[in-house]
Design a protein around this nucleic acid. Structure first.
Lengths: 204, 204, 204, 204
DNA sequence: CATGAATGAGCATTCATTCAT
DNA sequence: AATGAATGAATGCTCATTCAT
């Protein structure tokens, strides 16, 4: 199910470590100069690898981009799901999750922007996997909204749910991709305003 | 104020015509394969120019990208401003503009996506100009919101205005940049839902 | 029918000239160091072209190899066919052709060796064309043999013809590909001996 | 006299076994993809060795090619010499040897082709040894021809002998290197025809 | 003004060989 | 002896830009 990136190296633990280094290095480079303007030599060097060693852990530059995108999504999803581990009516968990999500968007501005700008450079199967992961994020809110409707804590129609879920995600991500305009604004204000607006839109 | 792209050619009308061709060709190519994967040869050919002639109307590939972005913004702004030419309370003009804007986003999906994905490849002065134009779009809604507060047709605080304006723009643009997920949805439904949600958020 | 090698350049005469240069340069390099040990940079330089210019006349290194092989076969065939332009019984024209062919093998030792050693590096469609051309050479002798049988100047069975034709070709080519062993021998002796032996085998 | 390929390993029997594996693997790979397109990794893997272990039995990729060529020649010579162990006039042993040789060419088509196409990649001292072995094969026929002249079973002049010996070898090898054209022919027919023709050329 | 051939720096990727473990 | 990860020079090819005609 999960896409597997092939490696020449046998030790899985070493692969894990080196790829973590590669991703760490590449996020910085891609965020700074973009995927196409970053050379594999730069990625290798910034990862502490030789030109050739990079290709022992990855089969192409596109593989690196995919690893980067996947890592970003994993991180976001993990933090988002952690925020769900509270008791109470769905409306409360929804608010919690929106706040958590916006917080993650703040701490991962570069990464979110990167996905917006570079994922189109992914080969088709990789792109689909990345979009699937992006959908998974939206799905978290989709599920919460349905729960809220079921337990009566949210007053909105199920037919509004899918779009509302997307609105939530986009309202959070914009802190990253419209940073150039929103940087005059205090993050706390942004987070509070967006949360309130979204909660109301969801019928809280 | 406006950035001027230099040209070897004297006749301004010829420059206008040729650049229109270049932009038309480049929008298609950039949308299809991205800025970096498009070659200047392809742009020239698709514009009906020779490789060399392209460089009589433009000094670099980045110039082409800038012309493309500027043209997209001009088109959007023009259509958006046309929607303002109605009488009545601001609330009514706001609704009109939001609907118009979402309509434009639908008809310019490729172009909007293009700006999201490729504007980072612009050299700094160009990028700033493009962001200024993007702000101009937001400003349209910003102004309408302030008007609505002044004429009492909108019940919201002025301090909410900047973010609300951004929310409106992003809520429209997402039809373009999340097309991969929203394509299961009918455009009319999308437009209606977003308009309602945004109007309520604005205190209509 | 004939395979066409694509070029970015429009002027066919210029293509002809430059490719002639490329072939001339490549024959020398391939003969000296082999196809794989020759770099495209070397080919370009030896052709009086820049690295990039080479690729205006050819799409890949394999294209160069094909052009080389085709040129060699064209030259051989042309000289071989010139030798047929005599009157008289087939037996006489056969002898003439064998002598001419062996003479060509002598003057094109490097080229014949090159085809033996490098044609396997051709992509499949090119390889087939090269083998077709090689067959064309054999066919010349095949035809002469049949003529000789018909006009009674050769006493052999038609069923022997195909193999005899190959024997002739190979008996000539060996002057090139077994040069390392035959270089103790005088060319005139070689030519005379092989011609006699082949003529007898053909039933003259 | 014999060239010795150095090894890091002490035990000669182990060297023998491992090199036999290497040769077996490399023949297949070289025949399939050629010397240059085969990687040392592939050779190692196909030999059941690790990348590093390969270099304990061989000092370079060229060493492998040499071992391959030498093994091929050994096999051919051994089978050829086995065919000489009959009594009778030289003419009879010659016929026997030609038939045996052509049979070997049939069973070793890939190997013979390999030597034709790849031996030029051998470093000079190796190449000379390989050519010496090739000469040894020719020498078998050279000797038989001289014997036949001495014992009166062959009517030809000693001065024809060297070239005749080469003709025999080449006439057999062509079954391998012109396989692409001769594959329409039955092997038995080929063997019979070539044997007759060669015997006659030798004055039987 | 227009053409399109030429330039050459730049890039992703490969692979023979080495060497620490 | 064996392993397999690491090295880094080398290579085929691309493409933005220039400039002679």
């Amino acid at each position: 199910m999960e896409i597997t990136i092939s490696s020449q190296v046998k030790d899985p633990e070493r692969i894990r470590q080196r790829r973590a280094e590669i991703v760490r290095a590449a996020v910085g480079l891609f965020a700074e100069k973009g995927f196409h303007r970053t050379t594999t030599r730069e990625i290798a060097q910034a990862s502490g690898l030789s030109t050739g060693a990079l290709y022992e852990y990855v089969a192409s530059k596109e593989d690196v981009l995919f690893l980067v995108c996947r890592h970003i999504h994993h991180t976001i999803l993990q933090q988002l799901k952690a925020s769900l581990a509270v008791e109470g009516p769905a409306v409360q968990r929804l608010r919690q999750s929106i706040q958590a999500f916006i917080g993650v968007m703040d701490s991962m501005q570069d990464e979110v922007l990167l996905i917006y700008q570079e994922s189109k450079s992914l080969p088709s199967p990789f792109l689909h996997e990345v979009l699937r992961q992006e959908s998974e994020i939206t799905q978290v809110f989709d599920n919460l909204l349905h729960e809220g409707i079921r337990d009566g804590s949210l007053r909105t129609s199920p037919k509004n749910v899918p779009l509302l879920a997307h609105d939530i995600v986009v309202a959070g991500q914009m802190w990253a991709f419209r940073r150039w305009a929103l940087n005059t604004m205090d993050f706390a204000d942004f987070a509070a305003s967006q949360t309130e607006r979204l909660m109301e839109a969801c019928g809280s």
